[in-house]
């Protein structure tokens, strides 16, 4: 085979490979938005961040405006300190609200920013004062069950008039699941 045609084929081959890599980076890896050029960093304290991880997206109105750059634990306040790198193009008022949301029921967690009405904007190194913790699913369920359990005996008592003194007494200490089965099978 002639050297020139080999050169041509190898050139095509390498070019194809670079295109594939570029395609992966742009179309699949979305390099364009994940590597934000100029950023400024603000921090926010949370009592509980749930499953939030570094590099999780920071969204406002559903649009990615930055990334979680760092998560630390503050031993004096026993809170999580989350650093957010936000794109320089977007300025947020000082009283912006930071929430930890979950994408879908079981999806990954991200930070949602809700803009306030302050005249002044957040600058590099500022702190977001108003935050809302992650919703921890187990906590939510147990709270729900606790509520159910505490109201369950009255429900069943009025409906069936069964001798439910036992359940009334033990309602608080009882296994919430018992309460559920009781309500579910009247």
């Amino acid at each position: 085979m002639e050297r020139t045609s080999i050169d041509l084929w190898v050139g095509i081959f390498v070019a194809l490979g670079l295109t594939a890599l570029l395609g992966l980076a742009m179309k699949v890896g979305n390099l364009t938005t994940s590597s934000i050029g100029e950023t400024y960093t603000v921090s926010a304290n949370f009592e509980n961040i749930g499953g939030l991880k570094p590099r999780a997206p920071v969204k406002s109105a559903g649009v990615v405006v930055g990334r979680v750059s760092d998560i630390k634990f503050d031993a004096s306040t026993f809170e999580a300190v989350v650093s957010l790198s936000i794109d320089k193009r977007y300025a947020f008022p000082k009283d912006t609200f930071a929430n930890i949301y979950t994408a879908g029921l079981l999806g990954e967690q991200y930070i949602g920013l809700e803009a306030g009405g302050d005249e002044l904007s957040l600058a590099n190194g500022d702190k977001i004062m108003q935050t809302q913790d992650a919703v921890v699913l187990e906590k939510m369920i147990s709270q729900f069950l606790y509520n159910k359990a505490s109201e369950a005996p009255t429900d069943t008592a009025t409906k069936t008039e069964s001798p439910s003194t036992k359940s009334e007494d033990d309602a608080l200490g009882a296994n919430p699941l018992d309460a559920i089965t009781q309500t579910a099978t009247p």
Binding site: K27, V28, G29, T33, S34
Partner: peptide, 14 residues
């Protein structure tokens, strides 16, 4: 595509 782009990281994956 969007799910893919949201979860594939340039450095960690590619």
């Amino acid at each position: 595509w969007s799910q893919m782009q949201a979860n594939v990281d340039w450095r960690l994956d590619i």
